[in-house]
Nucleic acid binder design. Structure first.
Lengths: 156, 156
DNA sequence: TACTGATTGACAGGAACCTGTCACCTTGAC
DNA sequence: GTCAAGGTGACAGGTTCCTGTCAATCAGTA
């Protein structure tokens, strides 16, 4: 194993922590949404179209996911009656995904549970510490985004 | 949407950042390991057995994953010649996963690329900021671990 | 020695993400 | 008006994780 510099060690520690926290957050999200008959992925899609009906491709762009991933989730939500496809006046083929009454009920339920959860967890951390974490992670994300974009350009 | 308290807003911001950073890290990991013919998941398994051959179940415990996930990855690595199953004197059925020469070569290659990458990214962040991020994320992880454990106990 | 319980790998199936390809629709340049 | 470029949903297939079930193996106990 190549010996890491101090700053590389530090960055690697952040990577490990982020992986672990991410896993726990997914677990928590599933637990929050399960009582409403949803999962994390489905809840997030409902959250996007709560602002108004949108096409699958538009939802995917908003969420930063591949179009087909959202397509799959949207189809599953439709077959469970949480959303429905409605005509899109701007595009004959690309229908809009729209919340049904059941979808809206489920979403409200999850949002209430989520608000209580976020408040509980947020309260357990010192505000300054929490703010520093958000800042640091955002900074790391921006650097990594830039790094990946540059690498990608080299290969192209 | 229920209005969130300030601390809930702050915590939610951390969640969003962690999700995004996690996605980018997975992308970066795949890019680091691709030249060696590996993926993030496979590289990590190789990293664990670099310390010595181990059973699939032991590797899963080390990585904090389900046994079957590692089984699948190990089988794939074996069919690609990066690892091999060797007899386990302590257990007739549970063979040990062991690095082959090709596996060791691939792992070394990824580790070199990883060291350079971590150093580059670590250098682009102020050490204090980076340390604060690690601290904050760790704190959040610990709180969430505790929270999930308590919730789980209630249901049991 | 015989039984019980935990661990293990094999097998089956599912969730959520990805990519690639195809045909259809819309848009904009000419 | 035509035609190429790009957006879009459908379909197929792959990766990495998960769960549940089963039989084989091991370890401790009566």
């Amino acid at each position: 194993m190549p010996t890491l510099t101090r700053r590389a060690e530090s960055f690697s520690a952040l990577v490990l922590e982020v992986f672990q926290l991410n896993g726990l957050l997914l677990q928590a999200g599933d637990r929050l949404s399960a009582p409403a008959g949803l999962t994390s992925a489905r809840w997030q899609v409902l959250g996007v179209i709560d602002h108004g009906p949108a096409t699958v491709a538009a939802v995917a762009r908003t969420m930063g996911l591949a179009r087909q991933s959202v397509q799959q989730t949207a189809d599953a939500l439709a077959s469970d009656g949480f959303v429905e496809y409605v005509e899109n006046p701007n595009h004959q083929r690309a229908k809009c995904v729209s919340l049904t009454a059941a979808g809206r009920r489920a979403l409200r339920k999850v949002e209430q549970a989520h608000a209580a959860w976020a408040d509980r967890l947020g309260a357990s951390l010192a505000p300054a510490r929490l703010a520093a974490a958000v800042d640091g992670v955002r900074e790391a994300r921006l650097r990594l985004e830039k790094d990946l974009a540059e690498e990608g350009r080299d290969e192209a």
